[in-house]
């Protein structure tokens, strides 16, 4: 089991490396740079900035630096090798491995990308937490009720709402809700910055909007999964031996119906992460998602790159966690050895 856990975690490494490399390559291709401002900076300043952030180094490999080391008489393969790889790409990748995502260019290097992430991510995480709790707490019971009262009005109503929830993107429902609240009910859902300290009511609305799609998907999945379990022999046996309704639902049906629901937690994590990018800018929440959108506007490439990699790592680990959780829920798929 431990071997499986380790292997599963290690497997995320090549995925993350590929994501980081692709992101680096694409961002390097992006025309214009972080120093392209309304008022052009003098050439000497740009040169200094580039030197400061190592942007004057070669892109992939640095043979001249390695030659220099060799000429200095160094024969240590590590020193020479490191000099050979003293390039923008490898420096960045080595940085990523050390959780160092480099300076945020927009702040002129005053802040590093990982500092911004550490500062802003808790707010996004709290919104995501509200979202996932909402999705599970509302979605699963909705699906259960739907399945137990199949083909009644409750079932149709929940099917209809969950179909809408699944298909309408959160950024559309978020914007419509925003307008409805402020124009229709005259409540402004935009909160002041202080409201985001701690875990206050400010998180409720963005969290719910963020979780809407996942909730609907969970309701649909729970319903179909419960319907399937409902017809199984062991459920009939449980009822035949006189078990009360609730234990049959809870212990026999739900436990078996939950397995497919857990499988969507991985994609759901990805959904919540990418959804937060939009939701936070709609509700003006000072989290990482809004920071990311602002970085796009400011062409803060190091910030965009770092945040994208951070998100990818997050999702990769969420997928690993979901894979591992199968074994806990269903002993039949627990990995042997």
């Amino acid at each position: 089991m431990i071997e499986f856990v380790i292997r599963r975690f290690l497997w995320a490494v090549p995925v993350i490396v590929t994501v980081a490399a692709v992101t680096f390559f694409l961002m390097y291709r992006a025309p214009g740079g972080p120093w392209d401002l309304e008022k052009p900076l003098p050439n000497s300043t740009v040169k200094n900035l580039n030197a400061k952030f190592g942007l004057d180094k070669p892109l992939w490999i640095n043979p001249s630096a390695a030659e220099e080391k060799l000429d200095d008489g160094s024969r240590n393969p590590f020193t020479v090798g490191r000099a050979f790889l003293d390039s923008q790409f490898f420096n960045y990748m080595i940085g990523v491995a050390r959780f160092d995502l480099g300076p945020s260019y927009a702040s002129k290097g005053a802040e590093s990308v990982q500092e911004v992430i550490v500062e802003k991510f808790p707010i996004s995480a709290k919104i995501g937490l509200v979202g996932i709790v909402f999705a599970v707490v509302v979605g699963v019971p909705l699906g259960i009720v739907s399945a137990l009262r199949q083909n009644t009005w409750i079932d149709y109503l929940s099917l209809f709402t969950s179909t809408i929830g699944v298909s309408v993107p959160t950024f559309v429902s978020g914007l419509l809700l925003l307008i409805f609240l402020s124009k229709g009910l005259n409540v402004s859902p935009i909160r002041r910055p202080e409201a985001w300290d701690g875990l206050g009511t400010a998180y409720l609305l963005p969290g719910i909007v963020l979780g809407l799609g996942t909730m609907a998907y969970m309701a649909r999945l729970t319903r179909s999964s419960m319907l399937e379990v409902k017809r199984q022999d062991f459920v009939r046996t449980a009822r035949a031996k006189g078990l009360a309704n609730n234990p049959v639902i809870g212990r026999h049906m739900l436990r078996n119906a939950l397995i497919p629901i857990i499988t969507i937690l991985g994609p759901a994590a990805a959904d919540l992460v990418t959804g937060s990018i939009i939701i936070e800018s709609i509700f003006n929440a000072p989290g990482l998602g809004r920071e990311f959108v602002e970085a796009i506007g400011k062409r803060d490439y190091s910030m965009i790159m770092g945040t994208a990699i951070f998100y990818a790592v997050l999702i990769a680990f969420a997928n690993v966690a979901v894979d591992l959780s199968y074994g806990f829920v269903d002993p039949r798929i627990r990995v042997r050895r």
Partner: peptide
Amino acid sequence: YAFPALLF
């Protein structure tokens, strides 16, 4: 699958 589509 690991690289969220929107980010890419």
